[in-house]
Simulated scan of single mutants.
Amino acid sequence: MSHPVLVKDILKALDIITGGRVVKSYADITGGNHFVTIKTSHIPGKSVMELPGLIWGNPEREVRRLAVMMTMTENAIELAGATGIDALVVHHPIAEGANSGGVTLKNYLDLYNLVAFELHEAFHGLHPGIAWLHGSVAKQANIAFGGIPGKIVWYGEAMAEVPTLGAMIERIEKIMGTAIEENMLAEEKKHRCCGHLCETTVSARAKIFAGSPDSTLGRTITIFPHTGFGPEDLEKAYAEYPADTVVANISRPLPDSGLVEKARELGMNFVAGSSHAMEIFENGVPLAFALKYQLPDLEVLIFRERMVSIPIEMVGTEELRDYGSRMARGYLPRPKA
């Protein structure tokens, strides 16, 4: 016999999954929980506070269908509203406007009677999956390298069945279904009669920046360059754990960057692994399964967004392009000389 699942049950499950990292009281927000952090580039008005746990919704409300996603967007909110989703568990921190179509969260989420949770830094380091997906047995994780929350580094060693960089690339592409993404993109190009479409998982696929397919994977340092991890950080990490290969995951530097040059200087291989578009598989799927195991009566879905670029001359239908041209010419004129 199934039992109703309440919002507070999901919050408790998230707390169990993270080992007690979610916000449970006001004291957690005012210094009692070090996973409550401010993310800022010091651009005026653009900082955001991470609040692991319940962001919006009544703790006593029943939840039947829940979606796990990486980043809340208006597309996700609209899909939730159209498909009977009750609650959203979002990995990345949620901010007014930025994650709710430019309007307040309250108005947009209440429109579709949605509950929202977030779980970012509080989820990091809980499982060794990212290293595992990239062919390494994780030995140690540092989720605040150099004392900076979110600057994550994994130290590991190659699995026996993944001895080389080429084997690692093959492993990533097989598990992540790169061939499926290529086929989908090929079909979309055909149906849109446009050969110039680009899609993230295909364009930002795993690549070797330093080394060759036959190079030994060996000891690995897995980094995340978008966290601010730079050449000096790599030098420090290498001093702590002399490794053979650097694996940049979720984001990657440009091939001629100082980070790649530092790896070469240290005699290391450098591989760009899965892109951020794949994190819904790397972190979202384990979290979704964990919630399902905690709350078996809850229906859990994965929300995955797909990003495609299209030349303006080929976007949409002829009628849509005519509409865009009419609006631009009639109402958005160029400045007069």
Rank of each mutant, 00 (worst) to 15 (best):
M327N: 07
L332T: 08
I29R: 00
S100P: 11
R205V: 04
G324Q: 09
A13R: 14
I16K: 15
L165P: 09
A328Y: 10
T83F: 00
L105V: 08
A160W: 02
T104W: 01
L165R: 01
E299Y: 10
L119D: 12
P333R: 10
P44L: 03
S251W: 00
I280Y: 01
N113S: 15
A131N: 13
V23W: 02
R264P: 00
S215R: 09
P4G: 06
G57E: 09
L254K: 11
R304H: 13
D9A: 06
E240P: 03
Y155T: 02
V36H: 01
E173N: 14
A141Y: 13
I169Y: 00
G135C: 06
P311Q: 03
A95N: 01
P253G: 05
A141K: 14
P93F: 10
G81C: 02
A98N: 09
P335Q: 04
E60Y: 10
T164D: 12
A82R: 15
I180S: 09
N142R: 05
K189N: 10
G101I: 07
K8I: 10
R205I: 00
T178D: 03
H120V: 04
R219V: 03
I43R: 05
A144R: 12
L133T: 13
Y108H: 04
G156A: 05
F281N: 11
E199D: 05
M184Y: 08
G135Y: 07
G258A: 13
A337D: 01
